[in-house]
Computed example of a mutant assay.
Amino acid sequence: MTVELTPSQTVGPFLSIGLIWDDGPDVVPEGTPGRVTIGGTVSDGAGDPVTDALVETWQADPDGRFDHPDDPRGARETPGFRAFGRSATDADGRWEIHTLLPAALPGEAPHLDVSVFARGLLDRVVTRIYLPDHPDNATDPLLTSVPEARRDTLIAVREQDDRLRFDVRLQGAGETVFLAL
């Protein structure tokens, strides 16, 4: 018997069925001390907004710990912090999450892991958001492995004390650096 692979499918209209949560953007609840908003736009190769994308974030806590078996230190209890956010883009391609900034991990600069799902993609694309002007960025192994001219596609821009901007460009000039997993 020969078994053939099922062809990959692009992300489709089912995206809004079960993947979008009402509280998805709230990694921490409103009123949490230190809460910041990280958001931006998702655009395609022509620079047009992608209005049906989903941006997921996963991050360490403010102590630099992951609630994950690969982090033997384990996460500390941070009330209301769930480490995972999910935001659908709106009619202008905008997304945002409300979270606490992560601290550095051993040997790595503070960052958020990001997955983007959108029409036309056969699989999610994965990237990172690094914090602007953080001294550990200069020694982060992943960030320093990216050609210097493209590193800015991985570093958020501070708009206000409590707001960072991170735009995702799926293709073309200024394309975000995506990771091969």
Rank of each mutant, 00 (worst) to 15 (best):
P79E: 10
P69I: 09
G85L: 08
R73M: 03
R94P: 00
W95C: 11
F84M: 10
A60F: 01
F66Y: 15
P72I: 08
H98A: 11
R73D: 06
I97R: 07
T78C: 04
G85E: 06
S87N: 06
T78K: 08
I97S: 07
G93E: 10
P69K: 06
D61T: 14
F81Q: 05
R86M: 09
G80E: 11
R65E: 02
V55T: 05
R82T: 12
E77A: 14
F84C: 05
R76C: 00
D67H: 07
P69W: 04
R65V: 10
D70F: 08
D63S: 12
G74L: 00
A91R: 10
H98T: 15
T89P: 04
W58N: 09
D92C: 05
P102L: 03
W58V: 08
S87Y: 00
D90E: 07
T78V: 15
F81R: 03
E77I: 05
R65C: 11
V55P: 03
A91G: 15
G85Q: 05
P69N: 09
G64E: 03
A75I: 11
G93L: 12
A83S: 12
G80Q: 05
L101A: 14
L100V: 15
V55S: 02
E96V: 02
G74V: 00
A88S: 13
T57W: 04
T99W: 15
R94N: 13
A88G: 10
L100W: 13
A83K: 04
R76D: 08
L101S: 12
P102D: 14
D70S: 03
W95V: 15
D61S: 06
R82P: 04
H68R: 13
G85A: 09
D67Y: 11
W95M: 06
R82Q: 12
H98P: 03
T57P: 00
G93K: 07
I97Q: 12
E77F: 10
I97G: 10
